[in-house]
Amino acid sequence: MLCDICQKNIASVHITEIVNEKMVELHLCEQCAQEKGIGLSEDFSLANFLAGLTDFDLPRVKESVELQCPNCGMSYEDFKKIGRLGCSQCYYTFKQSLAPLLKRIQGAEQHIGKFPHYADKGMREKVEIEELQRELSKAIQEENFEQAAKLRDKIREIKSKMKKSEE
């Protein structure tokens, strides 16, 4: 498989991403990948990378354009250029534009997973159950009952775990 960019070298970095609701596959050689900032580092900055490669545009929300993070001073223009945020507060400052961007690159809008101890107790489970319930009603709608049964069991399991930890 040859590299999508140079068409010369063998591709050794393979990425699939959903861009504008279309599946885009990228196969790059180490050299080109590195030039695009996803090479030898263990991680890659996909937002950054796609911005340079295609006419992929960050969502344009008018209000965002003039916003500046009160904590670190990063502007939305800065973020678009760098592809990285300035501080954790930036997530709240640019929330309106970030939400659709995250949905596009991550395929999700809600964190499911561990919470630090100081975040609300039981919050993690609450969020997870809500998400599972959404999936469950979708499965029922699609008459995918096997999947629905699995989801129902998972919800039960989490609920019983919550009960146990309360005791």
Partner: peptide
């Protein structure tokens, strides 16, 4: 996390410099 105040949001999880790492 007992000793450090992590950047965390209930919606987006652990907040990272690049949005491709946010969440877990």
């Amino acid at each position: 996390e007992q000793r450090l105040n992590y950047a965390f949001s209930p919606q987006w999880g652990y907040l990272t410099a690049c949005p491709t790492n946010v969440g877990t």
